[in-house]
């Protein structure tokens, strides 16, 4: 009796560990579902949209200009940010807000990217905290899942 209970418990623990490890590998190397919040990516992604972010492109250094990415916030590692890549290392980017008359430019340093939200008026991004290290990027958003009427791949940056 005791032995069978012990065996069942061990089996249950084993299954839990195995599936936990499967889940870790899937989320870490394939992709994850993300619930977006905040206004900074409107109108491409609005509050409470659910998107799928794949993890392989950042690992293989395949991030390109124009991709929408999930990254760790440089000022708080427990918060994720969702922005569009505007410049890669070596690119010249505009640091001033669109309404400024004088344009200020800077170059993105090695190993960094320049991020901006699509909602330029209401976005905390590289224009405030500067370029962020490439290694903070967690995933590239490749698919929008919810709401259903806008299901599909994501649009280019609105002009």
């Amino acid at each position: 009796m005791f032995r069978s209970v012990l065996g069942k418990t061990l089996g249950f623990v084993g299954y839990t560990v195995t599936y936990g490890c499967f889940a870790h590998c899937a989320f870490e190397y394939i992709g994850e579902f993300v619930l977006c919040s905040g206004p900074s990516m409107e109108p491409t992604i609005v509050n409470h949209d659910i998107v799928f972010s794949e993890r392989m492109s950042p690992r293989l250094c395949k991030i390109q200009k124009g991709d929408i990415i999930i990254a760790k916030s440089p000022s708080n590692p427990n918060i994720n940010i969702c922005k569009r890549v505007i410049g890669l290392e070596g690119d010249k980017v505009c640091t001033s807000s669109p309404s400024d008359l004088l344009k200020a430019h800077t170059y993105v340093p090695n190993g960094h990217v320049w991020l901006e939200g699509d909602n330029l008026k209401n976005s905390t991004d590289s224009r405030i905290y500067g370029p962020i290290p490439y290694a903070l990027i967690r995933g590239r958003i490749c698919l929008k899942l919810w709401p259903l009427h806008s299901f599909g791949s994501l649009s280019e940056r609105p002009t």
Partner: peptide, 13 residues
């Protein structure tokens, strides 16, 4: 498959 995923998780975590 189980071994690789358990090992990967242990190394990552």
């Amino acid at each position: 498959i189980v071994g690789v995923s358990v090992l990967t998780t242990a190394i990552d975590r």
